[in-house]
Design a binder for these strands. Sequence first.
DNA 1: TATGAATGAGCGTTCATTCAT
DNA 2: TATGAATGAACGCTCATTCAT
Lengths: 202, 202, 202, 202
Amino acid sequence: MSATEDSPPDWRDFSGDPLSPLLRSATQTFVARGYHGTTTRMLAAAAGMSVPGLYHHFASKQALIVAIMDAAMIELRERSLGALTEAGDDAGAQLDLHIECLALFHAHRRELALLASTELRSLDPTERDHHIAARDAQERMLVDILQRGVDQGVFTVDDARQLARALATMSTGISQWYSPAGPLTPADIAASYIAYARRLTS
Amino acid sequence: MSATEDSPPDWRDFSGDPLSPLLRSATQTFVARGYHGTTTRMLAAAAGMSVPGLYHHFASKQALIVAIMDAAMIELRERSLGALTEAGDDAGAQLDLHIECLALFHAHRRELALLASTELRSLDPTERDHHIAARDAQERMLVDILQRGVDQGVFTVDDARQLARALATMSTGISQWYSPAGPLTPADIAASYIAYARRLTS
Amino acid sequence: MSATEDSPPDWRDFSGDPLSPLLRSATQTFVARGYHGTTTRMLAAAAGMSVPGLYHHFASKQALIVAIMDAAMIELRERSLGALTEAGDDAGAQLDLHIECLALFHAHRRELALLASTELRSLDPTERDHHIAARDAQERMLVDILQRGVDQGVFTVDDARQLARALATMSTGISQWYSPAGPLTPADIAASYIAYARRLTS
Amino acid sequence: MSATEDSPPDWRDFSGDPLSPLLRSATQTFVARGYHGTTTRMLAAAAGMSVPGLYHHFASKQALIVAIMDAAMIELRERSLGALTEAGDDAGAQLDLHIECLALFHAHRRELALLASTELRSLDPTERDHHIAARDAQERMLVDILQRGVDQGVFTVDDARQLARALATMSTGISQWYSPAGPLTPADIAASYIAYARRLTS
DNA sequence: TATGAATGAGCGTTCATTCAT
DNA sequence: TATGAATGAACGCTCATTCAT
């Protein structure tokens, strides 16, 4: 995601991939068949390894999905914070860049995002709680931006909470239908969704 | 859903339940744990029956989820057609009632809708193809309404297909967060979403 | 072991078998290969069942060996108490009957006794503690008898504790070499061991 | 066991250890968990080596236990022969020293002796046959001594074979309960057991 | 010599499903 | 109609062992 771990990564740059080949293939299989519908033999075959080879890298099937979901959570959080920082204090700019960030992420990281929302239920209780908290914090960012815009007098919004949910599910929905083979680029989609967000707040 | 099977049901009336008690409890379990994460023992226990008792009513675990997904598909289709009929020829009215219909369905039939979108992958190939086609047809209704509004000159829309997907995922997203214990009624939500749709088409 | 559960069983009567056929065959296999060297497939094959058939009767391989070891412990305890009751207050009679009881048990219940001593280490911690306590209580019976004989002035014994261990291991050793195909009956062996015990206490 | 390999070792001297550190730690682990309950990882960890390091010294887990059991068998045989040689022709002296030898060995070589008796079943068939033959030869030594004493008219024994088994299991039993932390030294125990043997043969 | 990484085979256990009763 | 008992197949995982380095 960036040249060095220390330098702040560009939240618009998706040229890298935060997942190792094993986690990448596991993500695809988990998305296609679900956590419980995926066997360790499938995961091994998809990664071109033997089953014990899998266990050499991860302690369990659960550890695999936890690693994937951690990666998803961390990447989205860091990108969102990057967008917020770039936006400065203006709520309008914050909304634009936040929506751009969500749209880019859910298009570029289609499978990762799908998995993160679908398989929360397959996590062990402790991990599940952790990820639910992270998801809630992520969703609060958008509520806060909307509320800030209302306070600043730049947004016309009835119920910030409700609109935040509409905008959020609209954006996460991208990963349900986006295909890199389609006519739209992630940037195209982001531009449209920014326009939607502006209409819904004015 | 209606007093008799023949009379046209009211698409706003959710007082009935299209699912038998067995299918209703199965839906809850499938939503909570996923198709592959649910065992027939869980389904039997949730329904208060023995495992062979389950097989008396349904030929297999697969037949159970197919029945549930068929019910979801049929109910949404019939309600959508009911809304369209009531709306008449005006694209603006069609959009309002279609969005109202989607919002009401995804709030009132929260679990059914969640299952229908999440567990498509768990269906046997033939059934999956059938339901994917039905889902696509369902989504096309909204595209057609938007296009009709553009053609009638009452909507200002750049890309009808893209906006349809945004409106659709926004609406289906309701079933991801709606709770009957929350402050909003399904009708409240529908009203908000109609307003969102209007803003996005003007 | 007795006609009815309530009537006190005869501690010399080994015509019955406290183990079900499944537990009996499992005992043989565990003795022959050890707990960890025995697979559930072996146990199922030895019992003429399928593997899930095994799990229909017992929750786990561990539950099987626990049931066997419980049966061994309970049977030896009840027989020992029966012998003690029959002996009355005389320490000489108590020693005779206790040794007879140990000899008969370790000959008649050869495999059960072997298993109970060898596989203590294979029990889960809680069960292990329970059985170690029971074994210690069993061994204390002999120490107490010897001490009583010393107190009554009928035994000439240097160190009751040490002699008790010698007599006990000598007796449990029977199950290491006894074979029903050999020339000696359990009663023959018991008679000899009573004589040994008398010599060692006079 | 002795300063040089050629000089006859003192059968009462247990200051040395016939086992290499690796075999010693393996013996402890095998005793604690059984052959099949012990993994090569446990063996390596107990010896402070890596698993392949283990295989550098021994071709297999089986080779390890065979080496241990060979050492046990050889040591007991050599010590027994040493005791017999020292005893000369008198059956009474032979019995005393043989019992002393057994007692010392089963106290000093507690774990080795336990392993040798418990894990015969875990040996490959060829090795098992070999060790069973060695064990039988070892046991015959005691039978022969008793018979010699009867023939010489110095022992009063009904059934030499049976008494030999009682004396043998009594002695091997020492390794089941002896602890160096306890109040008795191996020499104490040996003295007691010699006294027991005398009582049982007079 | 020593080891991190790998694997075929098999472990204890559970699955969806069936059938005698 | 309902179920206690059963099972072939497959589950997640670990085993003893190997080999490139």
